[in-house]
Simulated scan of single mutants.
Amino acid sequence: MAKRGLGRGLAMLLPEAAEISQGQVREIDIAAILPNPYQPRTLFDPVALEELAQSIREHGVLQPILVRETDSGKFEVVAGERRLRAAQRAGLTRIPAMVRACSEREMLEVAIVENLQREDITPIEAAKAYFRMMREFGLTQEQVAQRVGKTRTAIANALRLLQLPEEVQESLERGEISEGHGRALMMAERPDAILRLWAVVKSRGLSVRETERMAKAARQAISPSPAPASPPDPQIQYIQERLQGALKTRVALHFASSGAGRIEIFFYSLDELERLLDHLVPQEG
Rank of each mutant, 00 (worst) to 15 (best):
G5S: 15
A154S: 12
E19P: 05
R4C: 11
R26A: 09
E189D: 12
R132E: 12
L270N: 15
K202P: 01
E176G: 09
P234Q: 04
G261Q: 03
V208N: 06
P123S: 06
E109V: 13
R41F: 07
D45H: 09
Q88V: 13
L116F: 06
P232N: 10
I56Q: 03
E119Y: 09
S178M: 02
S258A: 08
L84E: 03
L6P: 08
E16H: 11
F137S: 00
R4Y: 11
Q220S: 12
S72D: 12
D120H: 12
Q39K: 01
M186D: 09
L197K: 02
R174P: 03
E136T: 07
N115P: 07
L62Y: 09
E241C: 01
I33S: 03
T153L: 14
A87W: 01
Q117N: 15
V168D: 05
R57T: 05
R41T: 09
D71G: 12
A126H: 05
G259Q: 07
V251R: 08
A18C: 07
E264L: 14
I112S: 09
A229P: 03
G182V: 04
G138Q: 07
D29M: 13
A18V: 03
R41Y: 06
V168E: 02
L34C: 10
E104I: 02
A111T: 04
L206P: 04
T140H: 00
